[in-house]
C-alpha cells in the first residue's frame, strides 16, 4: 500500500517534469525541472525497495552533476536570437532517430507492464551490503572498466587545463 502511494505519484511527477525540461523556455528552469525529475526517479527507486540506489541517484546526479550544469547555464547569456532559434519547431529529419528509440522504449515498457512484474532482481538490491557484494564479486570487471574510463577522463581534463595549453598565461594565473 505504502509502495503504491509512493510509486505512482513519483512516477507521474517524473514524467511531467521531464516533459517540462524539454518545453520550458528558460534554460535555468529546464535544469531545475531535470533536478526534480531525478528526484522523482530516486523516489521510484526507493518505492521499489532500493534506498541505496535512491540516495546515490540524488548524491551523484542531483547533488554533483546538475550543480555543474546549473553553474554553466547560469554563466550563459544566450541572447534573443538563440532563444528564438530554440523555440522553432524541430525539422522532420531531426525527429527520425529519437522517434525510433522512443518507440522501442515504449514497446518495451508496455511489454513489461503486460508481463505483470518488473524485470530484473530488485530483491538483490534491497540493501547496500547485497549491492556491494553483487558489484565487487560478480561485476568487478565492469567496475574496473568504469574506474579506468574515469581516470582517463580526469587525466585528459588535467592535460587540457594545464598551463602550456594557454601560452600567454603562467600556471599561477590559472589557479
Amino acid at each position: 500500500m505504502m509502495q503504491i502511494l509512493m510509486f505512482y505519484p513519483s512516477a507521474v511527477i517524473a514524467v511531467i517534469t521531464t516533459l517540462m525540461v524539454i518545453f520550458s523556455k528558460n534554460p535555468v528552469y529546464a535544469v531545475l525541472y531535470l533536478i526534480m525529475s531525478l528526484f522523482a526517479v530516486s523516489m521510484v527507486f526507493w518505492s521499489l525497495g532500493s534506498p541505496f540506489l535512491a540516495m546515490v541517484e540524488i548524491i551523484i546526479y542531483a547533488g554533483a552533476i546538475m550543480v555543474l550544469f546549473l553553474f554553466v547555464v547560469m554563466m550563459l547569456n544566450l541572447g534573443q536570437r538563440r532563444v528564438d532559434e530554440d523555440l522553432r519547431p524541430p525539422s522532420g529529419k531531426a525527429l527520425i532517430l529519437p522517434g525510433i528509440f522512443a518507440t522501442i522504449l515504449l514497446v518495451q515498457t508496455i511489454a513489461c507492464l503486460m508481463a505483470g512484474h518488473p524485470q530484473g532482481g530488485t530483491q538483490l538490491l534491497n540493501d547496500p551490503v547485497a549491492l556491494g557484494h553483487a558489484m565487487y564479486e560478480k561485476h568487478y570487471l565492469g567496475v574496473k572498466l568504469a574506474a579506468i574510463i574515469l581516470l582517463i577522463g580526469s587525466i585528459g581534463g588535467m592535460h587540457l587545463g594545464r598551463a602550456a595549453s594557454f601560452p600567454d598565461t603562467k600556471e599561477k594565473d590559472l589557479l
Binding site: 534506498p51 541505496f52 535512491a54 540516495m55 540524488i58 548524491i59 547496500p128
Partner: peptide, 10 residues
C-alpha cells in the same frame, strides 16, 4: 535508515 550516511550526504 540503512543508508543513513548517504541520506546526510544527499
Amino acid at each position: 535508515l540503512n543508508v543513513g550516511i548517504l541520506f546526510f550526504l544527499a
